[in-house]
């Protein structure tokens, strides 16, 4: 089941050279995974490379359409703390 990239991608380019299959390409909106080429890095690496280098939580989905890097897992910011800060900024 191929990985995929969704619209929260910020186009930082990190995943594309990391992909052993050349499966990642750029579009105007964000980067995309070619499902025909994606192997989940099986046989090449222990971990899927795109999901291991991507800095944006939620931007990459695994083969089961689950978020590979859930909120807080990369930044260390507890999701409730982030929501609190956002609400405070909105209120200003």
């Amino acid at each position: 089941m191929p990985y995929s990239i969704v619209e929260s991608c910020v186009k930082c380019h990190a995943c594309s050279p990391a992909c052993p299959n050349g499966a990642i390409y750029e579009t105007t909106a964000h980067f995309m995974v070619d499902p025909k080429k994606c192997t989940e890095c099986e046989g090449d690496y222990a971990d899927p490379q795109c999901a291991s280098i991507c800095p944006i939580e939620g931007a990459i989905l695994n083969g089961f359409s689950e978020v590979a890097n859930p909120p807080g897992s990369l930044t260390g910011i507890p999701p409730e703390k982030l929501a609190e800060a956002m609400a405070e900024i909105q209120a200003r």
């Binding site: 910020v10 930082c12 380019h13 990190a14 280098i53 944006i56 990369l74 930044t75």
Partner: peptide
């Protein structure tokens, strides 16, 4: 150079 290989707590890539 858009890609990064680490995360720093003072940086937000978004």
């Amino acid at each position: 150079a858009p890609a990064c290989n680490i995360q720093c707590h003072y940086c937000n890539r978004k």
